[in-house]
Design a protein around this nucleic acid. Structure first.
Lengths: 135, 135
DNA sequence: GTGGTTGCAAACCCTTTGCACGGCA
DNA sequence: TGCCGTGCAAAGGGTTTGCAACCAC
């Protein structure tokens, strides 16, 4: 729990029970929706206001603690893993898996450097890889 | 307008004025939201019900005439260009631009073939390229 | 003729907002 | 103590739904 406190501290955020539990929840649930977080927190701890959850998430995004990710299925999810990474999206369920591949990142960087897209400054490239998980 | 009729016919859909105008609108607006479509149609023609627009779009997606695309900014947009392609997302506006690059598609296909991701069947790879358009 | 399609309005769901109270620094 | 964070409930905005009337085939 102390490393979670540190993360808040490093970003200059006040440490509150709500922020601690929300950040912990983000790290413990894979790509949660706001609703996933609320349920998780209400199960473990006492109550939390829905508005608070949204406000805290917004603040976390603002300071760069988490990211929003968007899926085909319209519901916003949150991701606490901040290094560059891609996502596998299941085409027959709501499952999302992270895909980390620094070799690929380098290939893409190189590719676009040579390509010289001259009216666009690339900041970030993310792959959405759709398909089916094998069982 | 006849090629639009053909597209509906090929997919086995009944040809109605609403479907014709919605599909035409999708081809004439870049990555429209549902609301963009409604406004476009109401400007050109007579009225159209909001519910109808959503139902028609859902049907088009079902038969593979269009795709949904999702952005950071939570609003669903529609895309009538069905060949594989990627998107540039402006990080300081809502502009989206298509990016077609068959060489890149081949490189990625090859890359993942060699990678042998063995618990996932890849169906489609889409790049989200975030950055800023130069003026 | 008849099943699919449309219009309309109400319902829904997720998210945002305003404000008074409460608690961290 | 002062200001930021929280809870609550109401409002907002986009999307979905149910049903009667309508129309393409």
């Amino acid at each position: 729990m102390d490393e979670i406190k540190n993360k808040l501290f490093e970003k200059g955020l006040k440490i509150t029970p709500q922020r601690l539990i929300i950040l912990e929840a983000i790290y413990n649930i894979s790509h949660p929706t706001a609703d996933d977080l609320i349920k998780y927190i209400r199960k473990k701890h006492s109550n939390i206001a829905i508005g608070t959850v949204y406000k805290v998430l917004e603040k976390f995004i603002e300071v760069g603690l988490i990211k929003k990710i968007t899926t085909e299925k319209d519901i916003v999810r949150y991701d606490g893993y901040m290094n560059n990474h891609h996502h596998f999206y299941s085409s027959d369920s709501t499952v999302i898996k992270d895909y980390i591949d620094e070799d690929l990142d380098k290939i893409l960087e190189e590719y676009f450097k040579n390509k010289r897209i001259n009216n666009f400054n690339i900041e970030e490239i993310t792959l959405q890889i759709k398909g089916k998980f094998k069982k």
